[in-house]
Design a protein around this nucleic acid. Structure first.
Lengths: 149, 149
DNA sequence: TTTATTTAAATGCATCTGCATATAGAAAAT
DNA sequence: ATTTTCTATATGCAGATGCATTTAAATAAA
């Protein structure tokens, strides 16, 4: 036990692994049952939607969602193939791409929300009161920000 | 927005996805860099270790870790192939298996801990004080237990 | 300029995951 | 006792992920 990495931290780590597996796979199952996109694909379309007609660079998506480069590349491939997104040439950088959500993508995004929201409530919301939910969001937010001083 | 699934719940959901991706992939990277097992494999060996010579049924692992049946089956395959676990016939149930950690598995488990603990501290612990860590563990624990009344 | 270095994105290949199903033994029904 | 149904685990196959590398363009160095 090297140097006791604080029992609480290890407990939080273990709980994070377990909670994520349980909740995410349950939500994913609900979405799949309704023949919809995965949460990750939803997130990408959401970002693209916010970016509007200007589109977004894959590297930007990579940074915002914290995904590996190749993963974004292939996720976009699939969204493109399914008709939810399309590419535009990038004026400032010839290597780059700009990815834009299509109308169909927007419709899909919108149509997913009721099911998605219901799944979130069912598998996460139903287990927390609103104070707990806020606190959980806050703590998880802290975790993804900069290291403590 | 179906019925406003409480902004806080959606925030917690989004934060859970992000935090898990960031922290888990960072820890996994540290383990991989040291040529060690994944956190999931560690967990399995840990459970097997606790079960001792009696071993554990795959279905029991499935339940404890919240994993899909086929996933456990293949994870055990690999642990077996790598020499960290082995099978014993199951007396009470001819269909079943009993999986036992090997000495090599125990050594591996033990040798992993310093690196694993350091990674947990680095990528999770360093961002939380001990009160926050406990609170996070508690809230994530609540999420994996039964639904609220 | 030409050449070297870096950066954005894509891709071949091996592994892993998820789904559906197979196998085989246990428990229940007849 | 047979047959049916159910349960525990494994597995073929398709799709996804991760790694390493490629391609092509941008930037820096010469």
């Amino acid at each position: 036990m090297t140097e006791n990495p604080s029992v609480a931290v290890v407990a939080a780590w273990a709980a994070l692994l377990r909670a994520e597996r349980r909740v995410v796979s349950a939500v994913e199952a609900d979405l799949k049952a309704a023949d919809l996109l995965s949460p990750l694909e939803y997130d990408i379309l959401l970002e693209l939607g916010r970016a509007g007609a200007a589109g977004l660079r894959p590297m930007e998506l990579e940074a915002r969602l914290g995904l590996a480069q190749y993963r974004v590349s292939r996720l976009l491939d699939r969204l493109r193939k399914s008709g939810a997104a399309r590419r535009r040439p990038c004026a400032e950088d010839g290597r780059g791409a700009l990815v834009v959500v299509t109308d169909e993508g927007r419709r899909l995004l919108k149509s997913m929300w009721p099911t998605y929201a219901a799944a979130i409530v069912r598998h996460l919301g139903a287990r927390l009161d609103s104070v707990e939910a806020s606190e959980l969001a806050r703590l998880l937010g802290v975790v993804t920000r900069e290291a403590k001083s």
